[in-house]
Design a binder for these strands. Sequence first.
DNA 1: TAGATATTTAGAAAAACATCTAAATATTAA
DNA 2: TTAATATTTAGATGTTTTTCTAAATATCTA
Lengths: 95, 95
Amino acid sequence: MNLLFKALADPTRRQILEQLRIKDRSAGEIANAFDITKPSVSHHLALLKQAQLVMAHRKGQSIIYSLNTTVFQDLLTWIYTIKDPHSPKKDGEGE
Amino acid sequence: MNLLFKALADPTRRQILEQLRIKDRSAGEIANAFDITKPSVSHHLALLKQAQLVMAHRKGQSIIYSLNTTVFQDLLTWIYTIKDPHSPKKDGEGE
DNA sequence: TAGATATTTAGAAAAACATCTAAATATTAA
DNA sequence: TTAATATTTAGATGTTTTTCTAAATATCTA
């Protein structure tokens, strides 16, 4: 959960997710959309992958990144728990 | 939106929210629940307030903090937009 | 296999962040 | 008004994060 929130805390990383929402893209295509260097974008992609927000697979020379929406469910669950004062605090919450 | 995500990125701050979910608390009550100093907690509370995740009002010597759940709606909207590939990208997104 | 393209890893520098102690401010009670 | 309690502000310090350049790895094509 902490990796997820940390991953979402950076605006560049959120923009990457917003790009992948439209369609899958290679690391290079993603990097070209930003003013920072490719190694920096590569680092952001690594953090997004660690948080399981994206998945990656090689296709020829390129590595294609795609969004993994399944982890957003954890986030939604956390938000709804906070929002609803009557919901019981479940095991495992709070790291 | 960036302040919101930044605010949620710290585990101590998320725990504060989880406490306020149950009931309103004074800064001191909140601080006592953590192993860090009161000034540090005070700083976290200031960031949560900046992000509008909490509200504060003085009651005698104490300052009572309470959860403001309305901003979570922005977060939900962002998540659902990312999750649904067909939803249009709205104005103002991506900071 | 050699050269070109795509991406990542390593290591360093700069910026942002969390935390601390000491001092300041606000409120209450004696 | 003085002392006590609650909280915040200021300023310093250490840690984490973002970013960079240079070099390494992987794949494809000639």
